[in-house]
Nucleic acid binder design. Structure first.
Length: 883
RNA sequence: GCUGGAGUGAUGAAAUUGGCAAACAUACUCGACUCAAAAUCGAGCGCCGCAAGGCUUGCGGGUUCAAGUCCCGCCUCCAGCACCA
């Protein structure tokens, strides 16, 4: 459509053919990967062409072509030059089945993203790309692009930025310090122990008295794979470092130090301060090892919604209050109140008078509200703060509750005042039923759970037991406590540097040479590309060495610097390398002097609209954004982001609703469908089957509809008249104009299914005409052209046109031809449609109302009743309310 | 568990700002054409009811003259994240 509107549209296609699928297939069939790639791309090309997809084939690229990957290698060298590519020994994820090292991004829940095998840990020298240096930009610049929200969310999740404090815990009797990262420095007074990850360097330095036991634990932890390590449901384990104590920077308290594998070595600082009262993981661990739990945050519940939600413009009135949990004198039951006015239910609650002892005020409230006289105060449970709107007093409340536990001595009871009786009903609730009773009130629910069992409270609240910070709201003191503790406010990421080495044959060779004298030396630019040698054996090895290392002729080279003996890097790049910049090569695919001509890049880049599958919205998208930003920094491109807009189509699923799979034979072969139904039918069906962004189940029987439509359109061709005087009837003319509007808009919104439906409606209308003026039929064909290019083109030529319909002009609406039409006004009586009448557009409200009341159907329904209210919406309806 | 998104006939699905729910298509039923079948054409097609009419967008409430659409609570499914301190 945009092309027909005269715009310059670059619609390219290419093949990203390096990587495991090709290589594994080649190994299986005993063919050369290069040959396999050619066969596959030839077949796909043929199929794509048969569907009439209007790709610009002159710009076709292939990432495995040395003329292409010369520039992939060039970009790598630039990154090396800028210090973004480095080789380092690190623990990597090794897939024993694919025999390949994986990037963190390629490991999903501890399994290989490709084959599902459980990954192992191996230590290896790897080329790395410092993507973490771009983490902030990759995160922040998401605000500047037009991606689907869920794509942005995925990117943000992956980068995993969080802000918090870095704090130091000194070690008693040692110069060493434990650095911890926390997002909750406000809980610092509640630290009761400190935990190190098993890989933490201090574990071996600290010399605990039980060194042997500690070492055994560390060895065992290292042996576990990621699934065993990171399952959040498994029971936590750990070992105390006997005799080692960390000093809390905020109150000099000495707390024990543990090593435990629930702490991850590669996030934050690899060590955490544990606050069991306010963190679920620490809580679980503390329960298991009987460690103290120190409560330092009292919950703060703020009601924002509903009738008791705080009113924003009114002041908060602070009140001290009590909540009383009262147990029956004999049964295991608790005293509850059901309020009559607002169906609130919970425990006895009341205000505390000034200077009144809390236990006393609790007893007083129990007596006033329930009549029970003899209560025994057992203990204070906790404090809870609550902001809500007091519906009876009509004011915003900020209540500070002390939660008290009482037991009733006996059933002696005074009568309750009539006012209290009117307010609420007093009930005894069995212990097991209390939870149900309080489930709709956050505060009461928390109080009950905390009373039964000291659960961790992990949300924001008000500090307590925290010296000078007590009484403050937790979110407001995070930075000041950090400062008080001598810590720093920092940003951390989940994102790790990108492991860029693969020990396989079918990838771009990493263009580096290692010389004994000079170390790593980049291959000079003039020697690019470093091509893959043709070899007989390219099976991966179990040792983790690339199969290339056995090709001594290729490996042994002279050092570019000193001309001494040296050897090539035998690792290859991951399959994500070539796809990280291919959209730029489309702009200038045959350029021999640069990855693309700068002027052409400035004209075309960035990509205006990138549509692709959701499977590429984390990794490929993140990597290519990273590469693009790097190219921007070295001045190779002029934009900060590669893609302006990123959308995603829904998957076409197999007939059962499952993913199409070759092994289950549920894959649909387009060749056969094109043969039986035609390419246009297939195209129409795919677009008509459902919304663009939604997954749909394939149903080959559905192809019959579009096929019939095309046959009918074809038959319409016989009705076309060249008579210039001939005009369509007013109705059809108006419909034609509306269809132009609808199809144009729907294409922009990617609502192809409704665009096709409106074309069907128009064609149905044309069928009722005896003759169709040629000009009008041409408009129809143009609207049809993007969907069914072959039929549209053929009918277009039959009308005597010589140039292709696909380079003709997109139709423009003639508003004047829609305007005069008559419309239907609906008459509703008490919300139900009872009558309707036709009239012209733009009639005055009064006239519509009068017309409506004169209708016999309306008179029938109103009878002798008097209309209470009449609402008239011009051009739409008249709504009458009667009693 | 957390964060998104969805839930409408037998089926795929439509429904600009709240304004006639089910457009368009498939399947199905009946009829025409035919010796017959297919194809094609015509009619019907949410549910209950002979009809008048009533009911209907996952469930329960609410706002409104009017709710698939807005608000509150729940259920189910899909996707993403998940020991990230």
């Amino acid at each position: 459509k945009h092309r027909m509107q005269g715009e310059n549209v670059l619609y390219p296609i290419g093949w990203d053919a390096f990587g495991l699928p090709t290589e594994n297939y080649a190994i299986k069939t005993g063919k050369q990967p290069k040959l396999v790639t050619k066969q596959n791309t030839d077949n796909f090309r043929k199929q794509l062409k048969s569907l009439g997809l209007s790709f610009d084939w002159s710009r076709e690229i292939n990432t495995t072509d040395p003329r292409y990957f010369k520039w992939t290698q060039w970009i790598f060298l630039k990154m090396y030059e800028k210090g973004l590519a480095y080789k380092s020994k690190s623990v990597i994820n090794w897939c024993p089945k694919d025999k390949i090292g994986l990037a963190n991004e390629e490991v999903v829940n501890g399994r290989c993203d490709r084959c599902g095998e459980v990954v192992e840990k191996r230590e290896k020298e790897q080329w790395m790309l410092a993507i973490t240096k771009y983490a902030d930009r990759l995160y922040d610049d998401l605000d500047t692009v037009d991606y689907l929200e869920r794509i942005k969310i995925q990117q943000r999740n992956w980068i995993g930025r969080s802000e918090g404090a870095e704090l130091e815990f000194a070690i008693k009797g040692s110069k060493e310090k434990i650095k911890v990262f926390t997002t909750r420095p406000d809980t610092l007074f509640g630290v009761t122990y400190v935990v190190l990850a098993p890989e933490h360097e201090l574990v071996s330095k600290l010399k605990p008295r039980n060194e042997k036991e500690v070492r055994a634990y560390v060895v065992a932890a290292r042996k576990k794979n990621d699934i065993e390590r990171t399952d959040a449901n498994k029971e936590k384990t750990g070992v105390k470092l006997d005799g080692v104590f960390a000093i809390n920077p905020v109150n000099r308290e000495e707390v024990p130090v543990f090593v435990a594998d629930y702490v991850l070595a590669d996030y934050g600082t690899g060590a955490v301060m544990a606050v069991p009262a306010h963190d679920e993981r620490d809580f679980d661990f503390a329960e298991k090892y009987k460690l103290p739990i120190k409560h330092v945050i009292d919950p703060l519940f703020i009601k924002r919604l509903g009738s008791d939600g705080i009113r924003n413009n009114e002041p908060l009135i602070e009140r001290d209050a009590v909540v009383c949990v009262v147990k029956h004198w004999k049964n295991d039951a608790y005293l509850c109140l059901k309020w009559k006015k607002n169906d609130w239910q919970g425990f006895v609650v009341g205000g505390r008078e000034e200077n009144e002892n809390t236990a006393k005020s609790g007893a007083r409230e129990i007596h006033e509200e329930t009549g029970y006289k003899n209560v025994r105060f057992i203990r204070k449970i906790t404090n809870v703060h609550s902001q809500f709107y007091h519906e009876i007093k009509k004011q915003n409340r900020f209540a500070h509750f002390e939660v008290l536990y009482f037991e009733l001595v006996d059933g002696n009871r005074d009568s309750i005042s009539p006012e209290e009786v009117a307010l609420h009903e007093v009930v005894w609730e069995e212990k097991n039923n209390v939870e149900k009773l309080v489930e709709h009130d956050e505060d009461m629910k928390y109080i009950w759970k905390y009373f039964l069992d000291h659960i961790p409270y992990t949300d924001e609240g008000i500090l307590t037991n925290s010296e000078k910070f007590s009484g403050k709201i937790s979110i407001e003191v995070k930075k000041s406590i950090t400062e008080f503790a001598g810590g720093k406010w920092v940003t951390k990421y989940k994102l790790r540097d990108w492991i860029f080495s693969r020990q396989r044959y079918w990838g771009e060779p990493i263009p580096m040479i290692h010389c004994q004298k000079c170390g790593w030396v980049p291959v000079p630019e003039r020697d690019l590309p470093v091509e893959l040698p043709v070899v007989k054996k390219y099976q991966p090895t179990d040792t983790g060495e690339s199969p290339l290392s056995a090709v001594s002729k290729w490996v042994n080279v002279k050092c570019p610097k000193c001309r001494g003996l040296a050897h090539r890097e035998t690792d290859t790049m991951p399959n994500w390398a070539g796809s990280s910049w291919y959209y730029l090569r489309y702009i200038d695919p045959k350029n021999k002097k640069a990855m693309a001509d700068r002027k052409k890049l400035d004209y075309w880049a960035p990509v205006d609209w990138y549509n692709g599958g959701m499977e590429h919205t984390t990794l490929h998208l993140l990597y290519s954004r990273f590469w693009h930003k790097f190219l921007f920094d070295i001045g190779a491109v002029n934009t900060n982001e590669p893609y302006k807009k990123r959308t995603s189509h829904g998957l076409v699923l197999a007939e059962g609703g499952e993913k199409m799979s070759k092994s289950r034979g549920t894959v649909v072969n387009p060749d056969e469908l094109v043969k039986t139904y035609g390419a246009d039918s297939l195209r129409l069906y795919e677009m008509f089957i459902g919304p663009f962004d939604q997954a749909v189940s394939w149903d080959s029987r559905g192809l019959i509809g579009p096929r019939r439509f095309i046959e009918r359109v074809w038959a319409l061709g016989a009705k076309v008249s060249v008579d210039k005087e001939l005009k369509l009837g007013r109705e059809s003319e108006s419909l034609l104009q509306k269809t132009i509007q609808k199809v144009s808009g729907d294409i922009e919104n990617m609502s192809f299914n409704t665009a096709i439906s409106s074309l069907m409606i128009l064609s149905n209308a044309f069928e009722k005409e005896t003759k169709i003026p040629m000009a009008d039929f041409e408009i129809f064909l143009k609207l049809l052209a993007p969907f069914a290019p072959h039929v549209a083109e053929e009918l277009w030529r039959d009308l005597g046109n010589e140039k292709s319909i696909h380079v003709s002009d997109w139709p423009i609406i003639d508003e004047s031809k829609i305007a005069e039409e008559s419309i239907t006004i609906v008459v509703q009586i008490n919300g139900k449609v009872r009558a309707s009448f036709k009239t012209a557009k733009g009639i005055a409200k009064e006239t519509l109302e009068k017309t409506a009341f004169n209708l016999s159907d309306v008179k029938k329904w109103i009878g002798d009743k008097k209309p209470e209210k009449v609402i008239v919406v011009p051009d739409k309806l008249v709504s009458i309310v009667i009693k």
